[in-house]
Nucleic acid binder design. Structure first.
Lengths: 166, 166, 166, 166
DNA sequence: TTTT
DNA sequence: TTTT
């Protein structure tokens, strides 16, 4: 069933990176998303939405995002519950990010790096594209960067899993 | 900042309709949205997402949706907090629905009624469309229904606020 | 960069299924999505949005959807261009569906079957879920169907790739 | 019926601002949205998506966005057709933006201004919020940056129609 | 506290 | 006809 969320906001704190017993990376952070309207007192409020990311993207988030970073998230709303130390059931609603976009420019550059997206799917998608885009020939040229995924000239960079040194 | 959620799922209970002291209608319900994947035990889980709707749409939801109804929601993620009777701060994340779509067929019909969308905006949008669509002339012909908003021939129907008898 | 579309509408024609030279399935169909407002003449118009689906989901679409079916789509907006027989460049905008949801009830049932979602990812997601949901234990039970993926009792069914007999 | 698009990308040219005979502002621009995957040649392609905005937001777009600007769009997919000078029917698919977010930082600032959202609705929403958020009182505190589009007291700023000097 |  |  359809379940889709897209958010753009700022991290309220540095991402927390952890590993499951099986060694899978998970990162948590909170996105403050300003509301497009003001409340009765004329103040602009924000929603504070908890984000969870897994695997490579969790590590990317931990490496590239920090408190205050502007980020975009594309994912799903998920709910779970647990019992707290008082034995009460606590219900949690959070966003499971399938892709995280880094929107903060670096070094006065024009910003807009992006990481995330399915890693294994990559090949599937390429296969698809190979067929659909044969008449297209339009490409963007994010060329010539090596180890440092953020070029010093401030150009926007899309960081796919394959480009990253981890 | 961008904050958009789209869900399709089933109501876990009848909507609860209330009125604020100022007489504004608010409805609450929970949408069970089945996950597209199964867990390690091979079970398909669901997310249980709390929805809030306001005003006319709240009343429409109360009138047209019930436990088990298939519904679509387009809205925003919102968070708030309150203090419970033990003096603990409880954080709540819910979806403020801007439009609710009724996806349950009625009377063996082919379903797909839709209500919601901005009521006041309607005129604005019409003004826009009047200009943009002058070359279009394509319309959908879900015609000829009168009082019963769900035509007996099972044709899909969009129920705008203006069509509804309240 | 973020690119997300979610649609619910009805097929204007049966899906067209084709195969690329490499044997990859592609299906095309058009979704008529009624606008939530009426035009100046009081008519409700619709948008006719071209959808492309790949691989297993293309075959599912061809098998389970037909003209008039109510369907949901979660995907991306894509553009491409080609040269027509008059040598003119034609620009095309369509939606590449990543998941397609079947919203048409069968046999007077309460509808809401869903197919699609990443096939290979399935395992990744399960791995994730195995960790996140250990306190959850909530499951939905789509049990006991065999060859015909649509149970005769009209229960809603999520058709994952693995469940399908192809 | 559900129809929702969210995009983040860069303008390929300055927005074109026009006025209808009735004096309603309309702006058009194209958003280049880089794909999250590379094609078979290893090139990263982009989708070039045409955006239409109306009224105040059209004027805001014309004033605040230019070729190369990073922008977010929340809107609907719309289709229309017209007859070209050769008498051929041309089909057009574009995104009608309901809100446009300015994501380009100004003068090395921390970026993320946002304009758009319904103007008339503002009051409606406030009325709603007045009731829902009485327990909230949380505001976001992105403090200590000055340069301009961000107020000196560090308050987060969404540029709503009312705040703008036109 | 969960739907089909 | 495309952005960074």
């Amino acid at each position: 069933m359809l379940n889709r969320v897209v958010l753009v906001g700022r991290l309220t704190r540095d991402p927390e990176l952890r590993y499951t017993p099986n060694g899978v990376a998970v990162a948590n952070f909170t996105l403050a998303v300003n509301r497009p309207f003001t409340n009765q007192q004329g103040d602009r409020e924000a929603d504070f939405i908890n984000i969870v990311v897994w695997r490579r993207q969790a590590e990317n988030a931990a490496n590239f995002l920090k408190k205050g970073s502007l980020a975009g998230v594309d994912g799903r709303v998920q709910t779970r519950s647990y019992e707290n130390n008082q034995g009460q059931k606590v219900f949690v609603t959070e966003v499971m990010a399938e892709s995280v976009q880094f929107l903060e420019p670096k070094n006065g550059g024009q910003g807009g790096g992006n990481f995330g997206g399915p890693s294994r799917d990559n090949n599937d998608y390429q296969g698809q594209n190979q067929n659909r885009n044969q008449n297209q020939g339009r490409k963007s040229d994010f060329s010539n960067f090596d180890d440092d995924p953020f070029a010093s000239d401030g150009k926007p960079i899309d960081i796919s899993d394959d480009d990253l040194p981890f």
